[in-house]
Write a protein that binds this DNA or RNA. Structure first.
Lengths: 197, 197
DNA sequence: CGCTCCATGAAACGAACGTTACATGAAACG
DNA sequence: CGTTTCATGTAACGTTCGTTTCATGGAGCG
């Protein structure tokens, strides 16, 4: 069983570097010092391997995140979270999860099973951290989307300075606590309904 | 040549529905009423086909976007842009571009060529629409990231109401014109430099 | 008609894919 | 010791992949 653990860890490292979209067993096996035969033997199938690899990834991200919220934070919660996502120890994992999430958009049957409600669980965490208000869920959605969008931009361009500046701007906006806008959820839905093609 | 145009259009429709990650010629050819032989004949190779398909996608998005900015806008620019991205005529294209962008993160040599600077070109457009200020580029980055992040959330969950509420919150924040925060670019860079792992 | 060029079909190529069958050596256990 | 179980290697299976080869039919043109 310990051999399987070792293989899972090495396979995860390989997926962090090469992605999971076109993953094939033989090159992976060659790189981590085993054979396609043994990967099937230990994990049952390619899908089983990817499943265990993604579970391991989620586990590590979870562990790192729990360590984060245990530490005392000097900066704002959002900025602290941003620094965590862009940390080079965490970014590869988030990139991998990004990949699976986007692949699941076009091929849910193949990839959705590897997403253990990642996005919605983070949304819940953020929502719990926000002050209570009628639009708290929408505010949490906004915060999560900003992290996602800026992270995607950071991963694409590598421009940490610009993306961090953007986050700090939003952070200062958030602290300003702008009062509720006139368009509540119902009126938004009304506007959308008159939009269709 | 007109036959090739027809094939390109049909292939794009197929990619909009099935994605481009695991695209293979024979199923595509079967679905659009041709053969793998002819796809190679017309487009030279699989990569050539994907290249032309993505060009066609970018062309259509571009055309739709130009039509958008030609129309008079009743709502805020950002909300107008959001309604455009989530329009069911446009969202599939943005989803496809999302897919390629994320695939390029892990495999730039294979996919980066299909991204004709999409993200940066939009950034420029947004930047031009914002009032001039020292942090205009960062603000543009923020706006683009919010659209990206919310769009990804919308595509993943289909929850247009919640994501639109989130956008409206940000829109109202933006209108409030919070003054510059203390952390300018230089101080941000300073903070980041002392972050490394 | 004869020639040329373009479009297409049928079939195959070699490679890579996930997976399996079979054999074997080592270790654990009675 | 004999037996069983686990881990592993070798080789193959059948399939699919992108691509190529060869042949053919038809349209345009002299």
């Amino acid at each position: 069983m310990e051999r399987k653990d070792e293989l899972r860890v090495k396979a995860l490292d390989y997926c962090l570097a090469h992605g999971v979209a076109g993953l094939s067993l033989r090159p992976l096996a060659l790189k981590i010092g085993t054979s396609a035969r043994l990967l099937i033997y230990h994990f049952g199938s390619r899908d089983g391997l990817i499943g265990e690899v993604m579970n391991e990834a989620h586990r590590r991200v979870q562990r790192s995140f729990e360590e984060l919220i245990r530490r005392p934070g000097f900066k704002s919660p959002l900025r602290t979270f941003w620094d965590w996502t862009t940390d080079r120890r965490n970014a590869p994992y988030l990139r991998l999860i990004f990949e699976v999430q986007v692949l699941a958009l076009q091929n849910p049957t193949a990839y959705a099973r590897y997403l253990a409600g990642t996005s919605s669980s983070w949304l819940t965490v953020i929502e719990a951290a926000l002050p209570s208000s009628g639009d708290r869920r929408a505010r949490a959605t906004l915060c999560a989307a900003i992290i996602d969008g800026l992270l995607l931009e950071f991963l694409s361009t590598g421009d940490l300075e610009r993306t961090t500046s953007a986050l700090d701007i939003f952070d200062s906006m958030l602290r300003a606590r702008v009062p509720r806008v006139g368009s509540d959820r119902r009126s938004v839905a009304r506007q959308n309904r008159s939009k269709g093609a």
